[in-house]
């Protein structure tokens, strides 16, 4: 069985993945797609790229999905993250959950995306239209918010 968390260097096959979430007991499906936008902190972005630690990204991502299945009363969960270069509008991350009722699908999906952003060893590099290039800093580090790069975050 393929891992529940996957790293892909190809465009994410959204329609196919959606099928993997189907479950006769599920009454709902929630999905988040992270898209590449053309601006970041007021600057104009041309494209970006992602790099991952191949072994640990899949390991930590799979751990997050296993934790989500423990924490929330959901049926199935899946997440795929892109590596390589992406153009504006490209799908960088795709996370989806199926569950009996809608609330837990929304909550679990949101939780998974938050955890992936803070725990999975994936790094984003941005090419700005002014020709400069920069690695994106950890969101929490940049905000100066106390946080861990290793532990799951508690629900708000």
């Amino acid at each position: 069985m393929p891992s529940l968390f996957r790293i892909s260097s190809q465009e994410i096959p959204v329609a196919e993945l959606r099928q993997e979430l189907s479950d006769p007991s599920a009454g709902g499906f929630a999905c988040f797609e992270g898209w590449v936008r053309d601006h970041h902190e007021g600057r104009s972005v041309e494209r970006l790229s992602y790099e991952a630690h191949p072994v640990l990204a899949v390991g930590e991502g799979s751990r997050i999905l296993a934790e989500a299945l423990e924490r929330f009363p959901i049926r199935k969960a899946l997440c795929v993250h892109r590596v390589g270069e992406l153009a504006i509008g490209g799908v960088a991350i795709w996370a989806a959950v199926s569950s009996d009722h809608r609330r837990e699908a929304f909550e679990a999906c949101s939780w998974i995306v938050d955890q992936v952003k803070h725990r999975v060893p994936i790094w984003k590099k941005e090419w700005f239209t002014d020709g400069t290039v920069a690695w994106v800093r950890c969101e929490r580090c940049a905000q100066g918010v106390p946080h861990s790069h290793t532990q799951p975050e508690t629900l708000p």
């Binding site: 640990l56 993250h81 952003k117 803070h118 994936i122 790094w123 969101e139």
Partner: peptide, 8 residues
């Protein structure tokens, strides 16, 4: 040595 992550 892994830098702070920035996926998503």
């Amino acid at each position: 040595f892994l830098p702070p992550v920035s996926g998503g």
